[in-house]
């Protein structure tokens, strides 16, 4: 029976699903990576995603303009990020707990706005799959990789860009310096709080986009709490990736592919209880880390508010 998994139809199905499912993890995970590399842990990703998802959905619902929807998600996500930055950088609040606070706020607020402004579950016509000329014609794999929606392409384009910014630009150097040794960065004239304000706000923007990728591209609906823990998985995947953008990509793809696999396992009627099928991505993510023992260490100043001495 297990061999029924290894047909072209199933493998391509898993690949396509995995690529799609990984999209929100990529946005949120990359955003979180920037924050953590500069020393700020944001556990509020889930709340930012929900508010971003709602903002995008509502804007599209009102105006019919998808780009305004994206703008709304960016603005709302950015505002949430800015608030997180204010609380964790300026007010030096404990980051883990303030993140949980922002998560609860976003969870409740997006629901409240949904109930007062929309009242019931509705749909929008979001970003449609966009076949890339020529590339999408490649036999077999073309439709898998090159017939996705704009926000999916953008998520994967973000990976090399984010990696370049982080590792090959002055900005990236500043971010890493602030996360590793804020005192030294400060003495060299880098404003620790300005860098952290930037990364945490950017993280909020990306979380907002992650939400928008669900509400106006992949699902085209908004429902209360629709992210359903996705934001927390995204944070976990940053650890999986060892604070490297490529690692986040690997983690997102692994988690999503296994999730797609378990759906197929059920569809093919393999004799595995559905609960165990659903467990698979969570178990395998841990197993993958056990097998490939990592030697990375977190940014030294992670979760430590910076206080300039003297």
């Amino acid at each position: 029976m297990i061999e029924s998994l290894f047909t072209a139809q199933v493998l391509l199905g898993i690949l396509t699903s995995g690529i799609r499912l990984a999209t929100p993890y990529l946005y949120a995970g990359i955003g979180e990576t920037f924050g953590q590399r500069s020393g700020v842990l944001n556990l509020g990703v889930e709340g930012q995603m929900l508010l971003g998802a709602f903002a995008a959905f509502y804007a599209v619902r009102q105006t019919g303009n998808l780009w305004l929807g994206l703008l709304a998600a960016i603005l709302v996500g950015g505002l949430m990020g800015l608030a997180m930055a204010f609380v964790s950088v300026t007010l030096r609040a404990k980051q883990g707990i303030s993140g949980i606070g922002f998560f609860l706020f976003g969870l409740g607020m997006s629901d409240l706005l949904f109930q007062t402004l929309l009242g019931t579950v509705q749909t929008v016509s979001g970003f449609r799959p966009l076949a890339i000329p020529l590339l999408s014609r490649i036999p077999v794999l073309g439709p898998v990789f090159f017939n996705q929606s704009f926000l999916v392409y953008a998520a994967y384009l973000l990976v090399p860009i984010a990696n370049y910014v982080m590792n090959h630009t002055t900005l990236g150097l500043k971010i890493r310096a602030v996360g590793e040794n804020p005192e030294a960065a400060d003495s060299l004239g880098v404003s620790v709080s300005r860098v952290r304000y930037f990364t945490v706000t950017l993280g909020g923007v990306f979380s907002g986009l992650a939400g928008a990728s669900l509400s106006i591209a992949l699902l085209n609906v908004f429902q209360q709490g629709m992210t359903s823990g996705l934001g927390f998985i995204a944070v976990a995947l940053v650890y999986f990736g060892g604070w490297r953008v490529w690692g986040v990509l690997a983690g997102s793809l692994l988690f999503s592919m296994v999730n797609a696999l378990q759906l197929w396992v059920q569809v093919l009627g393999l004799p595995i209880p559905s609960e165990f099928a659903v467990m698979m991505p969570y178990v395998l993510t841990i197993v993958a880390l056990v097998v490939a023992v990592q030697r990375v260490r977190p940014p030294t100043a992670l979760t430590k508010p910076f206080v300039r001495e003297g």
């Binding site: 609040a93 404990k94 707990i97 303030s98 606070g101 706020f105 969870l107 607020m109 629901d111 508010p305």
Partner: peptide
Amino acid sequence: PAALITSLNGLVVVFVVSTEL
């Protein structure tokens, strides 16, 4: 709506933790 309660709890957490300084 019960959602108000969730966001209110979130606000309390954020505000309380902001007294850290």
